[in-house]
Amino acid sequence: MSGAIGEPVRRVVPPLLVLAAAVAVWWAVVSATRSAIFPTPWQVVTGAWELAEDGTLWEHIGASLFRVGVGFGLAVLVAVPFGLWMGWVLAAYRTFNPVFQMLRPISPIAWIPLAILWFGVGDLSPIFLIFISSVFPMMVQTTSGVHTIERRYLRAAANFGVSRTVLFRRVVIPAVLPEIIVGMRIGIGVAWLVVVAAEMIALRSGLGYLIMDSRATPAIATTWSSPA
């Protein structure tokens, strides 16, 4: 196989084979052991279908996405300008970096009791948790992006005698954008991890809640699909 058709096939077929093999093994093992706690893949599909049909699934997905959207959006609004500033102004870096490096390794789970205390059990708690867990990776990534700009870009711009403001706007920001996007990818990943954990503990809606809720019912297949 070669040429235009061969390339997409080579890209799509191997992961599909792995997926199909995993489902086949899952199905075979569950059927062979007649397990009471593991549903078959088909039971998971029908479980998810039921939830999707009565609208519960979309409600919970919507609730989770709303929290991630707001928390992550706020984190981007804070982290990107602050990260650029810390990268560009040495004094700002020296002043704030130690504090952020200390706050950054605190587990988002450890913030949960404080979040509940401060914001109650509504939407604000998970939004705060998402914000606090995704803001630091993005800030660090943006700052280090500014620090690792190739010197020749800055020197080339300096040769044209541009002001510091123009240099920042025309050279620094475009040069750092790829790092900012990497930071956003890390941030949205963390945000999605955290929203599920937060909903398991504090809330009555969202995918995390749905998992915990279905765990307590006989509909164990639900837990696997969306658990649905």
């Binding site: 989770s64 996405l65 475009p174 040069a175 949205i188 990943g189």
Partner: peptide, 30 residues
């Protein structure tokens, strides 16, 4: 859980789409 994984994948792909924005292209096509 499978749905959570799938949505996470979609969110990541959505963020990656930003890499195609015009001000960024110069960096990748170099």
């Amino acid at each position: 859980m499978i749905i959570i994984g799938l949505i996470g994948l979609l969110l990541d792909s959505g963020t990656r789409l930003l890499e195609g924005l015009r001000p960024l292209r110069w960096r990748y096509v170099r």
